[in-house]
Amino acid sequence: MSAVLKSSNGKMQINMQSCRTFAEIKDQLEEQLKTAGDFWLGGGVSIETGHKVLSSKQLEEIQTILSGHGLHLQTNDSEASTGFESSGHDPSLFEQLPYYEDTALICKSLRSGQKIFTEGNVVILGDVNPGAEVVAGGNILVMGSLRGMVHAGVFGDDAALVAAYRLSPTQLRIASHITRPPDGELIVVQCPELARIRGGKVCIEKLKI
């Protein structure tokens, strides 16, 4: 495994591709900084995210580790890790997903009264029926019809997404935001959709993959 923290041309970088999970990255980083002592003291560190996207909470966690060893996160680079617009191309769903360690794969439909909870992402290969609940620390992807209740980013991650082949939930929550379909209006959308927070509100948009 290559090192998490590298320095090239006098610049220090955290390479997100070096580990599989965020927990590993944190462990490795801590380890490397410990062995380095105060060799890098006072330096700024940027993050090379590759195709992974970090949530603001995860950025914060990295910041905490760095400052514990007298280092700081270089903010201009951390912006780039969440702002893909700057790179010029139309971002695909997978590039926009905030990064979570575990993904649970559910290979059945959830019926009324059934509930799923995961700390990371959840992908459901089936429907989520009215009366069923999906709660996840990370993102929620439903490959069928989402008609029940979902809560993405339940630990407070505003960047978490909910995507579904057919998105018509009874109620949809992201972090501390709660929405429901407008009363009395029957909107029939025949394409996959995506829900996320934009400008402090839950927005529904067409899903581009």
Binding site: L110, R111, S112, G113, Q114, N129, P130, G131
Partner: peptide, 12 residues
């Protein structure tokens, strides 16, 4: 239908 769905889940 909602209750039937619940029952089908319990039967499964």
């Amino acid at each position: 239908v909602r209750d039937a769905d619940r029952i089908i889940g319990l039967l499964e």
